[in-house]
Structure formats: structure tokens, C-alpha cells
Design a protein around this nucleic acid. Sequence first.
RNA 1: UGCUCCGUGGUGUAACUGGCAACACGUCUGACUCUGGAUCAGAAAAGUCCAGGUUCGAGCCCUGGCGGAGCAACCA
Length: 567
Amino acid sequence: MNEEKLNEKEAGKPPVSFIEQIIIDDLKAGKNNGRIHTRFPPEPNGYLHIGHAKAICLDFGMALKYGGKCNLRFDDTNPVKEEIEYIDSIKEDIRWLGFDWEDREYYASDYFGKLFDFAVDLIKRGLAYVDDQPAGVISEQKGSPTRPGIESPYRNRSVEENLDLFIRMNKGEFEEGSRVLRAKIDMTSPNMHMRDPIIYRIIKEPHHRTGDKWKVYPMYDFAHGQCDYFEGITHSLCTLEFEVHRPLYDWFIDQLRTDEYRPRQIEFNRLNLTYTIMSKRRLLELVREGRVSGWDDPRMPTLCGLRRRGYTPESIRKFIDLIGYTKYEAINDVTLLEHAVRDDLNLRAPRVFAVLNPVKVIITNYPESQTENVELINNPEDESMGSRKVPFSREIYIEEEDFMEDPPSKFFRLSPGKEVRLKGAYIIKCNGLKKDPSTGRIEEIYCTYDPATKSGEHQADRKVKATLHWVSVKEAVDAEIRLYDRLFNHEDPAGQKDRDYREFLNPDSLKLLRNCKVEPSLKSAKPLDKFQFQRLGYFCVDYDSTEGHLVFNKTVGLKDTWAKISK
RNA sequence: UGCUCCGUGGUGUAACUGGCAACACGUCUGACUCUGGAUCAGAAAAGUCCAGGUUCGAGCCCUGGCGGAGCAACCA
């Protein structure tokens, strides 16, 4: 072990991914004049999800860390699938995540002219031809992974004829699907993508940016690498499924480049999460079929959904940092994502009292008309967050779950004859209850309090087994609270043969609680404000919330040891 | 039955040009606690897909297997 390694270990330097290692090596070798330039290339046909966040963190993160730049480039080569409405949401989500492309907002459609010229150039060099065959025939001639393809009868047309045809394709003289432009490479290549790939097709639908200027549009493979080249991208990072496209990417770059510079495509593993689907197509189905309330439903793995759920950008970045970038197609445990939010919110979320399923407690020896304001620490993890006053009185709500008439031995909350501490207030003892005779449901719990045990005072340090949160009845504010659970009840809902992922939709993924009581300080809480409801979990104010009608979303529960014991 | 990529605790990652398999999450103890949270201390858990080979020494190099994924859209 050499000294450098020792030093690194002692400094606790986090390991770098194989991609970061390549960047470091390239920098060291002075490649591309020491430039680092990446790009994030979303297709504007859906909302960004946490899988995209993994790519964004890499693309922008590497540029940031190594003094480079990262472009935002919308991959808008297919006017029939793409819509302008997605562009704004994509930009908003990237900014929210904490990244900035400055003035470098580009569109593949910005390069349609250059791409067209390049196609013309390939035709002139005998490296591209117009094929008049229908899709089915072209596909048939392409062969299969185990069977080589055969050449198209149009493969050896003259340059003049190809040129004439291609230009007329773009003028709209031919029907969609009647002709395509193909690169002339190798129909017998073991790599399917090299078997004379289609590079231009006729589409007569207007494009959201270029209108009806073009009647032919480049395919992904003919646009992506060249756009990288035009923008001076050095490291073009994408997911593993593009691995087999790389020879084609390089082939086009070889036809295009004029000096040493060339962008390099590197592939990494995409993000898979347990109990989650990540395909844009399926997420769109959930939205269209009304199985969720929209792209930003808090159960969705979209960035806007996670945001509404109460996730912070920091927690998402932390999570992505944790899972790393490799070439192994991994399935990440959602609990790691949940851990990342808890970890982040623990430090920043103010603690408050909220009772989800209220049951009334009457403190029989507490003066009827009295209310006192007890002081509570806002966040034990961060003294600078200060404290607040919360009203306490004779009648309070506690959590239904915090009382058991017949408790097992491990249960140390309130039960007849037992004492608990009301956090920030007094120790109380239960000595009676009232039940609804017809349902058996507990309506009221009667307790006495010990005035000498007020928090912070001399004799207050008597030990009791449990501390409960509570809300004073008189001052309680009503709230609606939406409890979320995973959207699917199968670890891999999309990966089951012969089973549709919708079969695994969790019927209990949303539970609405309309009779919740929260402390009065929450009255003016604004959408996206985050709190820890003491002993329950982290909650975030929903967009639907108003001052007269508070609505909270459960982000994630606290670790719950009792839940394990009671199983 | 072609090409490409990948196989390290339960999960995700680490181990520089071979040198005591490490970290995080999770799990289990215990301490502390006015959150059954947080924190702290500790434990269990892989011998690196298999079989050979090279080597003083292999997760890493070589050979051969096995297993998984991707690739046959006028999608990206």
C-alpha cells in the first residue's frame, strides 16, 4: 500500500465511480485541451423522474466538480411524441434539484439544418441512400441478432438520384413511410445498429419549435452524437441500453470530425427502485387512466411528485450519491431513499404536535377554565431553531394508538392505572374511561395530572416509560392528512411475466384522514413547508392546503420500533 | 443460439499497476433519551457465480463453463 492510498483512506475520501475515474484520467492526459463538457438530454415527452435525477446529478455534478460545463439539450427529434408543456416542467425540476445550465439551453432541433447538411454530405460521399421500401420489408431484410441482413435493392442508387430524392422527401413530395434515408454501413454486421440504420424519416406533423419547415426528421442515432459534437461535448453520459449504439455513435463522429476532438459516449446503470415503476410510458398510463391524481401525485417517482410528497433536493442528491454509478443493472431498495429523506429532514424539520386519530383525554384535577402556554423546543438537533409556546388545558387529544385498555407487557404508553409524560407538560395517570356502549369504542379517557411534574421544573424528572404528544382541544386546528404507502405491493411490478404491472397497484397506497387535530402554530403553514409531527413522521403541506383547511402529506414515517415489537 | 455488457454479505457500492475483502442501508444487542425518533457502543452477516491455471500470494490476470441483462421501433 503506497502513501497516497494511505492518505486517501485516512482522509475518508469517498470512492469515485468508474466514470469519474475516466474524467480524472482524461484531465490528467490533457485530452480535449483539458475541457470537461457534459450535457443532459431529456426528450420532452414526459415529466422527469428520480431516474433522470441520477443522470442529472452525474452530468451536472461532474461538470461542477471538474470545472466544466453542462448543457441542457432537449432531444426533440420526433414531433409526434413531444409537447411543449413538458419543457417547462423539465426546466423547473432541474433547477429545483439544484443545477444550473446558465445560458446553454439547446434543442436538437437547433441543429436540424446542420444535420440535414451532414446527411447530404454523406449522400455525396456515397455513405447514405434513399430506400423506397416499406417498413416491413426493410425490417425483414435487416435480419435478426442471429441472422445477418441482406442489402436493399436501392442500396446502390446514384448519388444524384439519392440527392434528388432526399431533397424532395423534405419538400413533402412523398408520403410518410414511403421512403427513408439510410446510412450505408454493413448489412452483415453482428451489431444490428450498424445494418444500414435509418437516419431520416418523413414526418408531416408540425414540430413544436420549427413548425412545418421540415418534412424529414433525423433519428436519435443520427442526431445525438452529432449534437454532442456541435456543442463540443467531451463526455456523453447515458444509460446502459445505449451500449450497442456506441459503434454507430463513433461511426458518425468519424465521418464528421476534422481534428483530434471527439465526444465520447460512456454508459452507466440506470436507476431501478423496488416497489416502483420508472418507465415514462407506464407513468403516463397511470396519469391518463386516473390511477393517480397526476404527474405530481405524491406517490409518483417523478421529481414533482417527490417534491409534493415532501422530499428535499438535498435528500435526493444524497440518495443518488449513495447508490453510485456502475455497469451492473442493480435494483435499489426504496428504504434507502426513505432513509435519505429522514436523515435530511431530521436536521431541518421543526417538530410539532399533530394527532392523526384523536381521542379525548380529560384531566379531571386540572382547573376547568385554565390554559397555560408550555414551551417546546423546535428542533433538538438544531438549537438555533428556537422554541415555541403551545397551549395546554384540561381537555386534550392524544393518539388513539397511544392508549390500550388491555396492554401487552411491552406496551408502555397510556393504560388504566399507568402514568405517561405529556411532552412539554405534565405526567398524567389514567384512572378511568368512557366507552360507547353500542360500539365499544373509547370516547373519553380520564386522567389526573401531577402539578409538580411540569417540564423543566425541579421535581419534574421522575421517570416514566413513555412520552406522548398531544393537542389542546380548545385550541386544536383541524387538518386533513394524507397518508401514503408504496404505490405497488410487489418489489418489481413491471418485471412479472404475464402479469400487468397494474395488478400490483397497492389499494392502500393513499389513506385520507379528515379528522386530525394539529397545534395552533400550524395554522399559517404554507404549501411545501415541512414538519416532523412528533413521534409520527415527516409531513409536508400540500398545494391543496389553505388557511381554513390545512392539508398535509406524509413524506415518510419515523423509524418505528414499536411497530416491529407489536408484530 | 450471434454480438455487447455484467456477476463481491439481504440490498447498493469499495478494494490504486495482484498484498489481512471495506463502507452505507437493513437486521440484532446494549447505553442514553421528556420523540419506542435522533445519538452512541457493539454484533451477526460475503470468502468475491463455478472449475481449472499463472503466482510466494488472485475479487483483481489467463482459460473454460454457468447465470443475468441489452440489441431485430420510420422511439429515445
